[in-house]
Structure formats: structure tokens, C-alpha cells
Design a protein around this nucleic acid. Structure first.
Lengths: 262, 262
DNA sequence: CGTTCGAAG
DNA sequence: CTTCTAACG
């Protein structure tokens, strides 16, 4: 769940949402704060364990993972030195499963930001292979949750025609996601799409500009990517699009899945 | 009246205060906006004429004068080239009286900001003499209203002991105000003090930090400086300290005077 | 403590 | 349109 500033989100309804959530694990992106800047009840909500990986630039990026049980291990970053302190990846081990919280960089076509995004994508693709290999070798499953900042197909974005040259829906980005998902390549499964193969969306992000939310002019860029064994155990997967602006506490919406035998 | 950002003030209660005010003229300081950034009903409130002198640096300083009748003339600045576009002085002519809105710079003892404040003070002192001379020659009165950013005497500041080395209560600043007020020198009259010679305050500014407002830990730095003839016609002069935090829409409070034959 | 701007999303 | 920092007050 991309919270777009955990301090702002917690002033608007994040804790209320969390209190009603039945999730065992919550992955946060765009925390945009260091732990000492968070009120105690936000930093470690009642009944949860929380681990944070802030960015080294104040007020930017930052990921976290909340678990109801203490994790067996916590790892920050994914091995790429350039992104070691970027606040963009954090993973925890729970019994039988590794969970990653990912915040893939925002790009801007034709700029150095896009080059950075693509360097991140290349390095992270390699890490995804490594993670899947380790998990298989250890007899574990893995789940990488987060804001991938890429919509895969036309069904994953409302205005696909108008966004073909925009970062987040560029052909090379869509191809990269295709490789992540290809059975003979990355081998990961997009859990929401696997359970809802034929529908539009469900979108998980709507710009705050204009009437995007009201018109459901959204993008499905927040995804839960599971190893095949775990994906096969998914019983439901959905996006919690807020019922009203009053219930909205981020420009993203939570994406949730349930698995048998969790 | 120093509004500390006219946009913020108007969101909090400035227009409501203005609607209940019986003033014929209102001088504003720290407008912190250009005219095109202001909603129409804020830029020129119903029933008023308004003239603005913004600073050339966005979001800083800026003075204005509101009058119920259109002014006969409007002049921006006071002749000092260094401060021509500083958004710190604007004057209008009304029948028989010239009214200036002044926002004297904030200083910081021992820094270049204090040097700038002192250059402003020197140049403005010369202008005050010029203004008084012109007014006398034309048979007019003059009134310079605004945030002078200096407390004159111990009775003008709650914690005078702790502020003797702080900009706003430095000996040289107090002496400068003394010269502005001296009958044989500047010859101006501090209208509120003239009508309330023996009281503490009334303070017109309280820092937002801590409990300053609740404890009335304030400074009397907003003053109406009148030529002698006009000062003699003052019938009342007061500071509108808000009754509660809810009614507070700036860290300053309005300072108002009434004159016979206005 | 509060208002702005500017960068970022 | 909203978040945050930084400078300023």
C-alpha cells in the first residue's frame, strides 16, 4: 500500500483502515518519514511489529513492512549499491515465506529519471531471479508487494491510448513487466490479475489532479507478485477503492490478497 | 495589520473581521502574495478599494492599503532604490491626509539581516522627515501604520530583560524609535501610547511558539505614527487582541484608532 | 508554530 | 492536487 506520506495518511484515516483490516502482513510504500518523525501509535500500531527502510533524502520514498508476528529476519535493499539507501526495498522472512515491500522509482520519459528507473528495473529483475532461486532452494515461497510504477496491459490503465509515451506505460516498461511474469523467464504471478483475468483494472492509483478518482481514471500499478506455489493458494485478491473522498487517505488504494494455509 | 499571509488569513477569519470592522482605512503588511494569487473577494473586498505593493521575491513581505473611498494618489516605495521592490512601503493620499503602510524588516542581531534592517531604518528615517515636511507644506496630515518590528520601551514588551540582545529590542533600535518620536527630531506621535501612556502594552504580536498568546507574552511592535495635528484628533486607539485561538487569524492583532473630523 | 515556495509525485 | 523540505518569521 502506497500511503503517499505516512504522517499525512495517519492524519486522514490510515490507522482506522489498519484497525479494520484483517491482513496479517501490510507492506507500505512512500512512507516519506524517518521512524523518529512518526508518533508512537503510527510507527508501531497496536498489535503489530513494524520495520522501516527510509530513504537517505528527507521526505522521499521509504518502505515498511507491518506483521502481526515478529519476522524471523529483516533485510534492507536488494544488493544494488546505487539503491542501497533509496528507501525502495525491504524484505522480511515469516515462516515459509519471504515478503518484500517494493517502491519502484517514478520515471519521466526522456529524462535522467527514466534512466534511473531503468537501471533500477534491470537490477531488480536480477534480484527477482535470485529471490525466486533462494526461495525454491529453501523450500519457501516469496511475495513481492508494492508500487511497481508500471501498468502492464491496456486493461491495466483507463486511458491507455493517451499514455503510450508516458513513463509507467512505455513499451519497454510493459515488456519488462512481461518478462517478470513470463513462466519461462521471471516466473512470477500477478495475484490480482490471476484471479481476475478478464476485467478492466482494478485500478490502484488515481492522480489527485482533476476528477480522476470520481471518473475512475486510474492505473493498476500496485501489484502483489507471488511465486507460483503461493499464487496457487490465493483465494481472493482485490483493491480497496475507497467508497468516497472522505475515506480516501492516499492517492493509491490498498491491494490485498488471501491465501489458504497462511 | 500584519496578516502573516493574506491567503492563510482569509481562510481563517480575515474577511469576517473586515466585515465587522468600522475602519475607513486598513493597512496590511506581510500580504505574501501577488494580486493574481488572491481570490477576487479577498483582493478587493466588497465595499473597499485596494492597492497592493508586493515584494519581488515570491511569498515574502508585501503591503497593501484598503480604503472605503478611492484614494487620490498611490505611491509605492519611499525613494530608497534598495527597497523599491521590497514590498515594504506603500502610501495613499486621501482628502487632507497621507496614509502609509509600513513593514519594517525583521532583523537578527549580528547578522547581515540586521545590517539590512539598519540600512532600511536610516533611509526610512530620512523619508519620515520628508513626508512630514511635504505634509506640513501642503497643509495635510500624515499617518504611517504598520509593523515597525521594534518595541520602544520596557512597557512595550513582556519579557524585556530576556530580549535586550534580540533584534527588535536592541538599544540602537529603541534609540531610533526614540528619535522618530522626539518632538524636536522626528516629531511623530505613537497614537496608541499617547492615549494609553501608563499601561503595559497593549501588545500587538505574540510568537506562535509555545504558549505566548495564552500568557500574553507579546511585543508592541505594530504602531500608528501620526503627525502632531492628526494625533491631537485621536479619540480612541486600541489593539484587537483576539478573544480565543479560534478568532486568531495572524500572529499579530489589528491596531486601530479613531479621529475626530475624519 | 505557522506560512510560504519548490521539488516531487 | 497533495506531500514534503527549507527558509523565513
Amino acid at each position: 500500500m502506497n500511503v503517499n506520506g505516512l504522517r499525512a495518511a495517519s492524519r486522514k484515516g490510515y490507522l482506522k483502515w489498519l484497525a479494520t483490516s484483517r491482513a496479517d502482513v501490510v507492506c507500505l510504500q512512500e512512507v516519506r518519514a524517518e521512524e523518529h518523525q512518526l508518533p508512537d501509535d503510527v510507527r508501531v500500531p497496536e498489535g503489530w511489529h513494524a520495520v522501516y527502510a527510509p530513504a537517505d533524502t528527507p521526505g522521499r520514498a521509504g518502505v515498511a513492512v507491518l506483521t502481526r508476528r515478529a519476522p524471523e529476519a529483516v533485510r534492507v535493499g536488494f544488493g544494488a549499491p546505487e539503491f542501497a539507501k533509496a528507501g525502495r526495498y525491504l524484505e522480511v522472512d515469516l515462516p515459509g515465506v519471504t515478503i518484500g515491500s517494493l517502491y519502484l522509482p517514478t520515471g519521466e520519459a526522456g529524462t535522467p529519471k527514466q534512466e534511473m528507473k531503468e537501471r533500477f528495473m534491470a537490477a531488480f529483475f536480477a534480484y527477482l531471479a535470485e529471490l525466486r532461486g533462494k526461495a525454491a532452494a529453501d523450500g519457501r515461497e516469496a511475495l513481492v508487494c508494492g508500487d511497481w510504477n508500471i501498468a502492464h496491459r491496456e486493461a491495466d490503465i483507463k486511458n491507455w491510448r493517451g499514455n503510450r509515451d508516458k513513463s509507467g506505460f512505455l513499451p519497454e516498461e510493459r515488456a519488462w513487466l512481461g518478462r517478470v511474469l513470463a513462466p519461462e523467464d521471471g516466473g512470477w504471478t500477478d495475484v490480482v490479475r490471476a484471479l481476475h483475468p478478464d476485467r478492466e483494472g482494478p485500478y490502484s492509483w488515481w492522480t489527485y489532479r482533476g476528477r480522476a478518482f470520481d471518473n475512475d481514471t486510474g492505473w493498476r500499478i500496485d501489484m502483489l507478485m507471488a511465486t507460483r506455489g503461493l499464487a496457487g493458494r490465493a483465494t481472493e485478491a482485490f483493491v480497496e477503492r475507497a467508497a468516497s473522498h472522505d475515506e480516501r487517505w492516499s492517492d493509491h488504494a490498498p491491494v490485498t490478497a488471501a491465501f489458504t494455509g497462511w
